[in-house]
Amino acid sequence: MDVVETKISQVLARVLANGVTSKELDLDADLVDDYGIDSLQMISLLLGIEDEFDLELDYESLQLDDLRSVRHFAKYVRELRGAAPE
C-alpha cells in the first residue's frame, strides 16, 4: 500500500465509522457493494480526499462508475496531482 492508498484508506475508515481500521480495508473492494457506502458517505469521502491532498474535485464531471475502490481513487488522485501545476 503506497502513501496515496494509505491516506485514502484512512479517510474511508473515518467515513465508514464502523470499527474497521484503514489497515483492514481491501484496496480492491467495491465501495458500494462491499462496504455499503451511501451517497452521504461518498460525498464525505470526496471532501475528505480534497482535504487530505489539498485538491478541488469537479463533482459535476466525476465518473463514479470508474471510482469504485480505494485503488481506483488512488489512481485518480495521482493523475490529478500529476496534472496540477507545480
Binding site: 465508514l16 464502523n18 470499527g19 474497521v20 481491501d26 462491499d34 455499503g36
Partner: peptide, 9 residues
C-alpha cells in the same frame, strides 16, 4: 450479506 466488513482483510 450486509455490506461492511465481509471483504476486510
Amino acid at each position: 450479506t450486509t455490506p461492511g466488513v465481509q471483504r476486510a482483510v
